[in-house]
């Protein structure tokens, strides 16, 4: 590992100034992804600015019924938070479906959003990878690509975003609060991550030195129901093959509102707007669920090893919609 300088940040402004002024500097939170990448030689920062002691470690109620989650809140604390369990169960479920107990105790909200793909070629510095070394080619395109993308991929990169939490946040219409030298800005979580296009090395819209300080959730509708379902190769402690986060409201047998995000399928948490459109106002029937899934998957393109993801997504999405629209007591 390359030697690096370490600083513990006491205040956000000086941390932002330090990282903004040094192209080799990086923020470090829980470190569960970054420390691993430094061991593997995927990334070689010259300076780490530790932001875990900044005052972003609480979950606060907002006027209007929403919630603000600090960027350094640990994944385990967030999943255990009563307000999240009671009012945003899809988020608690997504967090609990990710990683292990030990890792959730370290991992932070901001770090989870910025974790990088688990594509085995990206993590292996002996193989070409456009994301790790732009211009070298994509080894997964013709290689082992069981875990890779079927939506929104490009000829340059077929990696998937590994986060469960971010999929739930996408379905919850969360907003990411970011601070930089130019001040603060708010980014809808669905616009934080980028599709690979011809710059797969750029995974988010953040500029170097910008710091995620919080994530805000809007007030949930009292009549909505939400859930997160994850399909994986093992029952626990594995990344998603396919996951579905959904927030649904039913009124008189018809779906009045649906927000759906898919995980394991794309370079970013995939907000399923075509499926949402197909569901809006439609009766809560198997045919509706299937049509919604088909609408979303119309543009899906399978690689050698991941064609199974397309029917798996259709089935998982249908199962989630069936569960969320089931009448109480029926």
């Amino acid at each position: 590992m390359k030697p690096f300088d370490y600083q513990r940040a006491d205040d956000a402004d000086s941390a932002i100034a330090t990282v903004s002024g040094d192209p080799e500097a990086r923020y470090i939170g829980g470190g569960t992804n970054l420390v691993d990448h430094m061991k593997l030689g995927i990334t070689e920062p010259g300076k780490l600015v530790d932001i875990t002691r900044l005052p972003y470690d609480s979950v606060e109620a907002l006027p209007g019924g929403g919630v603000r989650i600090g960027a350094t809140v640990r994944n385990s604390d967030l999943a255990a938070s009563h307000v999240i369990r009671q009012r945003y169960p899809v988020l608690a479920q997504a967090l609990l479906a990710g990683a292990s107990g030990q890792l959730r105790n370290l991992a932070t909200t901001g770090g989870n959003l910025l974790q990088r793909t688990r594509c085995s070629y990206f993590q292996d510095t002996s193989t070409p990878c456009n994301k790790r070394e732009p211009g070298t080619g994509c080894s997964a395109l013709e290689g082992w690509n069981r875990y890779h993308a079927v939506l929104g991929a490009s000829e340059h990169c077929v990696a998937t975003n590994p986060s469960d939490m971010a999929v739930a946040l996408a379905a919850l219409d969360a907003t990411v609060l970011v601070r930089g030298q130019e001040g603060q800005r708010r980014i809808p979580v669905t616009e934080l991550h980028r599709l690979p296009g011809d710059e797969p090395e750029r995974e988010t819209v953040l500029e170097h030195g910008e710091l995620i300080t919080a994530v805000e959730l809007p007030a949930p509708s009292e009549s909505s129901r939400s859930t997160y379902r994850k399909v994986r190769d093992r029952a626990s402690y594995a990344f998603a093959l396919v996951s579905v986060a959904a927030v649904v409201e039913v009124s008189e047998g018809a779906i009045s509102h649906a927000r759906i995000a898919l995980g394991g399928l794309a370079h970013k948490p995939w907000r399923a707007t075509a499926a949402e459109e197909a569901l809006r106002g439609a009766p809560a029937t198997e045919e509706t669920f299937r049509n919604a899934a088909e609408a979303e998957l119309a543009e899906a393109r399978a690689l050698r090893d991941n064609a199974f993801k397309i029917p798996m997504t259709r089935n998982t999405l249908s199962a989630v919609l069936r569960e969320l629209t089931r009448q109480e007591g029926a």
């Binding site: 370490y6 470090i28 105790n105």
Partner: peptide
Amino acid sequence: TVLLDGRRATSCLTFAVA
């Protein structure tokens, strides 16, 4: 795995200096 400030954590994924 160790208990770090009372909570279980993987000690291989955190720098001592942190």
